[in-house]
Each structure stands twice: as C-alpha cells, then as structure tokens.
Simulated scan of single mutants.
Amino acid sequence: MLDLGDLMVFAKVVETESLTKAGTQLGLPKSTVSRRISRLEQHLGVHLLNRSTRAVTVTQDGALFFEYCLRSIGVLRDGERALQSRQHEPRGVVRVAVPAMLGQSLLGPLFARFLEQYPDVRLVSVVSDDAVALLKGGFDVAIGIGPLADSGLIAVKLGTTESGLFGAPGYFERKGNPQTHVELPRFDLLAAGTVDRRQRWTLHADDQAVTVEFSPKLICNDLLLLRDAAVSELGIASLPAFLCKHDLAAGRLLEVLPGWQTPELNFFALFAEPREMPVRVRSLVDFLVENLRPSLSWEIH
C-alpha cells in the first residue's frame, strides 16, 4: 500500500528539484528523504527520479506519477479544509433546559431565530427548573435564574430584567389604588411560590428599601399564571418587565406605586465544562447573550 507521507516527500522533491531543500521544508533529514523516495520507487517498480551530485530531475514515469500525486494531495487538503470548516460552523444537536417562565414567553421566538441563522443545528428543549439534574443527565446547557446556589457549574450571565407591582384597571376601579406600601396588605396580593404561608416583598426606590409582609390571595410557581391572574382582575402581582410590558403598553395592566420596584431577576446560561463546549453550544450561548438582553428590558420591539 502506498504511504501518503512518501507521496508528500516525492512531490516536494519534484517541486524543489533537491533532496536537501525538500528535507528542509518538510523538517526531515536528507537521508530520510532519500530513503522514502527509494521505498516509493521500489513499491511502484519504476524509476521516478534521476539523481546526481548536481541536480535531481524527474523521469517520464516520475512526471506522470507527479500529476497524480498533486491531485491526491489536493483532495486531501480539500478534506482537511472541510473538516476545519466543520469545527467552526455550528452543527448537530444542542440539548437545552429552560425555566418555565422563559420557555413560553421569550425563548421560543429566540430559538426560532437561532435555528434560522444556523440551519445545521437541531435543538432539544425541555422545560425544567432543575438545571443541575439535567446537566448531569447529559444536557449541554441550562438556563438558570439567579441568585444561583453553589452547584459547581459554570455560569454566563445572559441578562437582567427589572420587576414591579401591577394590577388591572378593573381591579382598581372596584378596590381602589394603594397610595403607599403600608396599604398593600389590605389588597388582594398574588405571590410566586409553592408553599401556603405568609409572603414577603422587598420594594426599593433609589436608596430606600421597605418590606411588605402579607397573606396572598393566590400562590403559584408559574409567572405566566400570575400575569394572567393580574390581567383577569384578581389582584396585584410582582411581575418582571419582559412578561408584562405589552400588557402595560396596551392598558391591560397598571403599575402600582410607580418608582418602587421588586428585586430584579438575573438569567444565566449554565454548563459543566467550558473547555469541552462544542461550537454549536457556544454559538447558542453567544446568540442568547446578544439577543436575550434586549427582550428582558422594558423596551418593546
């Protein structure tokens, strides 16, 4: 069987017309170049080069074989470039876990744009707030909401969204409108959570901060449900900007105690090992960093 390395050596000798120059360019001793040429000639059963103390010239058979060598080397280089290109172009499957509050409202449209931009990528998306378990189970990346617990995972911040208190105009027509935070517990308040117990909101404005404790009318761990309950005139809810800005613009919701905000939410891309991150995963993370932040703001696109 032909040794591809011998073909490269032969082609370089023909190009340079010298065993010494070929060896220098290939990083090989002249003796090794000579031995590999002799092995190639023995394998083919023909004389490829005329060698003298002054020059190296190619024989007729050598010239014919040189043409085929160039074609073969060209094909190999094309293959090398193709593989290198694959390593820099996102392709393959990305498995991503997303929190419920983002999956339906923001990430769906962004994923569609990402797949349009990278047609060779496929996404497997699972709605789950247990990022650690899914990453340990083989997922590539998970979207987490901070503050983050110490899990040993690597985190890249995707963006921040402000939050505030909102209710429907119809609710305020029936119940009135709180003028200070002290009045809030007298209203129907809707809280995020999973346990039936008294809740606490921390409100801040500039350098001021106050705490409001209350027994909620509704407790749930789905912000979309909280938003729908507020729009349906059930009460007042703490909602992030990205989830309620369209309702606010359309008049379906009104801000309560303007200037006071509830704590902002930070979103992160979580993954286990950055040094082993494939291009397809890095491309998704970079895409979210660039495109998710504007969506999290109050700005309407």
Rank of each mutant, 00 (worst) to 15 (best):
L4R: 13
T16Y: 07
T20L: 13
K21W: 03
T24Y: 10
Q25A: 13
L26M: 12
L26G: 06
L26V: 09
L28N: 01
T32H: 13
R36D: 01
I37K: 01
Q42I: 02
T59Y: 12
D61Y: 13
G62Y: 03
G62E: 02
L64F: 14
F65R: 00
F65A: 12
F65S: 04
S72F: 12
S72Y: 12
L76N: 09
R77T: 10
D78F: 10
D78C: 04
R81W: 10
P90D: 05
R91K: 10
A97L: 11
A97Q: 06
L102F: 08
G103C: 10
L106R: 05
L106I: 14
F111P: 01
F114Y: 14
E116C: 07
Y118D: 04
V121H: 09
L123G: 03
S125D: 01
S128A: 09
D129A: 09
K136M: 05
F139S: 00
D140F: 04
I145R: 09
G146R: 10
L148W: 09
D150S: 14
A155R: 11
V156M: 06
G159H: 06
T161F: 04
T161N: 07
E162I: 07
F166Y: 15
G167I: 03
G167R: 00
G170V: 03
F172M: 10
E173R: 15
R174I: 13
L184T: 11
L184K: 08
L184F: 11
R186Q: 15
D188R: 10
L189W: 01
L190G: 04
T194V: 15
T194H: 12
D196G: 05
D196W: 10
Q199E: 15
W201D: 00
W201Y: 15
L203A: 04
A205L: 08
D207K: 11
Q208G: 00
Q208V: 03
A209G: 08
F214S: 02
F214T: 05
K217T: 12
K217E: 09
C220A: 06
L223F: 12
L234V: 10
L239Y: 04
L239F: 10
L239T: 03
L243N: 02
C244S: 11
H246M: 07
A250L: 09
G259M: 07
P263G: 08
P263M: 08
P263A: 11
E264P: 06
N266W: 05
L270K: 04
F271G: 00
R275T: 14
M277V: 14
V279F: 02
E290F: 09
L296T: 04
L296R: 03
S297L: 05
W298M: 15
